[in-house]
Design a protein around this nucleic acid. Structure first.
Lengths: 243, 243
DNA sequence: CGCCGTTCGCTAACGGCGTTCACCAATCTA
DNA sequence: TAGATTGGTGAACGCCGTTAGCGAACGGCG
């Protein structure tokens, strides 16, 4: 927690902040494609090589931006979650899901950087460490925790361990071991299914994969939310958004 | 249908085929990112500017490749569908879905090019014309037709028009109007929901968005298929794949 | 056959990209 | 104050998509 003491250290911290801000601005203005190191340098008022005093490569810089955006999104989600009164887990989960979709639609460039497959899906390397991965885990944790809270408050029916096939059970067990609370494997299965339905739908909507049929997927999203809520036994918590 | 008559026309057709083949090879070997015009030229044995005698831009070349891949995928799907004996629509639909996932996993680079969001999701322009769009429509049509066949053979419960909200109903109606057969709007709603569950899941799996929990999403996919089959009243047609 | 326009390949070049290098001035440390 | 470290510079390399201009091969025609 040692703050900057030197003039140098202060200047360095300032420049670092400037660079991250500039990167964010370039991203919003020129999209994921236009997020070029040279463009960022131009925006900050530095020459491109100067950025290498702060980041080892463009990739590392982008990863830093990704982490920042994840954090911003998580803050938004937690803020919305904590604003729910009274704090019923079901309402909080539905609110977080709607807030996620809202953020995605309002920040398409940022969303594209976080959840798009710019070279990271096809080349499935995506390191487990690094700030971006950590921030990503925080993001997943927000929803996982809400889901767990819903179950712990009022269990919903889940498949018995015996109903899951062996490979699946093993993988769920491995994943479950990484989480703080212990839950039946069936809860994880229901969580994954619900997650795919909502998160997958948002991705498809923002990335235009539904435009063949729909201009606005809001109703489809609400319908999917409804199905998920029924499965989680929180249909009563599914208040329609005022919008 | 005028075949090549001149020596020139024959040479041109050959070169065109070579280019498309080379592009495909470059795509597989170097991924979507590495699909560079210069790399394709190198692979064919031409200088980069020479490709401009065949395509107006890199984008047009890539679009041609996209169309080729869609066609190849559609051929595969139709082949699998038509191999189902007896030709029960339910079995055909499930078979097509499994074939789609199989193709996606076996051809990650090609899948990334077709269904990734390389600059086309964030910038939502994606022209409605062009060979790629036409081939994409053919792809969607395969599943839409199977879904319609399932419904026409044995209707499954669908929401009444009155249960859909107004905006949604209007959009479904507009989309429905573009299809050859007329179906209740609720069928389209069920189709979209099922589509998102299966296609969205495959995208998430291939693009690595499930790796936080699962290494192999086969079981999750089968579970989602099961849910969809139940909703479509074709649970009996859900034979487990031998694999 | 020879002529002429078209086609198709080449080289050279432009601007943009990420990245490395050598150099220099400002800054901190001893 | 001397020396080391830091943070900036311009020049350069090799990649990218794309354009312009040139020359050779080819096709149709008198």
């Amino acid at each position: 927690m040692a703050g900057p003491v030197n003039r140098r250290e202060r200047a360095r911290a300032d420049t670092l902040r400037d660079i991250r801000g500039a990167a964010r601005r370039v991203l919003v203005e020129h999209g994921v494609e236009g997020l070029a190191l040279r463009a960022i340098a131009r925006e900050v008022g530095l020459t491109p090589p100067a950025l290498y005093r702060y980041f080892a490569s463009r990739e590392e810089l982008v990863e830093r931006v990704v982490a920042d955006l994840y954090d911003e999104l998580c803050d938004r989600l937690e803020e919305a979650r904590d604003a729910v009164a009274p704090p019923r887990p079901g309402v909080q989960l539905m609110t977080a899901a709607r807030t996620f979709r809202r953020w995605a639609i309002d920040h398409p460039a940022e969303f594209g950087l976080l959840f798009g497959n710019a070279a990271d899906g096809v080349v499935p390397e995506k390191a487990d460490d690094g700030p971006a991965a950590a921030a990503g885990r925080r993001f997943g944790g927000v929803f996982a925790a809400l889901m767990a809270a819903v179950y712990l408050q009022q269990p919903f029916p889940v498949p018995a361990d015996g109903d899951l096939d062996e490979r699946y059970r093993d993988q769920l067990r491995a994943w479950c071991a990484k989480l703080p609370v212990e839950l039946p494997l069936g809860v994880m299965a229901v969580f994954l299914s619900s997650w795919v339905r909502l998160y997958g739908l948002v991705c498809m909507e923002v990335f235009g994969h539904l435009r063949f049929a729909l201009d606005d997927a809001a109703s489809l999203f609400e319908a999917e939310m409804h199905d998920v809520a029924v499965r989680l036994g929180i249909e009563a918590d599914l208040v329609h958004p005022e919008e």
